[in-house]
Amino acid sequence: MNKHLHQHPLIPTNDGQFLSSSFIWTNAVQEIYNFCQQYSLLWLWVYLWNEWYKAYWKVLKRDFLYKFFRPRLDLVVFIIMEKVISHQKRKFEQVFLVKQKKADCCSFFFTNCFFICKHLVQQKGIVDVPFFDQIHRCYEYPFLNTLFQINNSNQFLQITSNIETIENEKLKVIEKENLENEECEELYNHLIDTMEKSLEILKDQQSKKNFKWIKGVEKNFIPIQKMLLEITLYKRRRVMPRTFKDHSCNTMFFN
Score class of each variant (00 low, 15 high):
M1Y: 06
M1N: 08
K3R: 15
H4D: 09
H4G: 12
Q7M: 15
L10M: 03
T13K: 05
T13M: 07
G16L: 10
F18Q: 06
S20H: 06
S22D: 14
I24D: 06
W25V: 06
Q30S: 14
I32H: 01
Y33V: 11
F35A: 06
F35I: 03
Q37D: 09
S40P: 08
S40W: 08
L41N: 05
L41H: 04
L44C: 15
W45L: 00
W45F: 01
V46C: 11
L48N: 04
E51N: 14
E51M: 06
W52Y: 12
K58S: 11
K58L: 11
V59C: 14
L60K: 03
L60I: 10
R62F: 10
D63M: 03
F68P: 07
R70Q: 12
R70M: 14
D74H: 04
V76F: 01
V77T: 10
I79R: 02
I79E: 07
I80P: 02
M81V: 08
S86T: 05
H87Q: 05
K89E: 03
K89F: 00
K89M: 02
R90D: 13
K91G: 03
F92T: 07
E93K: 02
Q100Y: 00
K101N: 04
K102Q: 01
K102C: 00
A103P: 04
A103S: 01
T111F: 05
C113W: 06
F115G: 07
C117Q: 02
K118M: 09
Q122A: 09
Q123C: 07
Q123R: 03
G125F: 02
V127Y: 01
F132L: 00
H136Y: 02
R137F: 01
Y141C: 02
F143H: 03
Q149D: 05
Q149F: 09
N151W: 06
N152V: 05
S153A: 13
N154T: 07
F156S: 09
N162D: 15
T165G: 09
E167T: 12
K170N: 10
L171M: 15
V173P: 10
I174Q: 03
K176G: 08
K176D: 14
N178M: 13
N178V: 03
N181Q: 10
E182L: 10
C184L: 12
E185Q: 05
E186G: 12
Y188A: 03
Y188N: 10
L191P: 10
S198E: 11
L199N: 12
E200G: 07
E200W: 07
L202W: 05
S207C: 08
K208Q: 15
K209Q: 13
F211N: 09
F211P: 08
K212F: 15
K212G: 11
V217L: 06
V217A: 07
N220C: 09
I222F: 12
Q225E: 14
K226T: 15
M227Y: 04
L233A: 13
Y234I: 04
R237G: 11
R237T: 06
R238I: 08
M240A: 13
M240L: 05
K245A: 13
K245M: 14
H247Q: 04
F253W: 15
F254D: 07
F254K: 01
F254M: 04
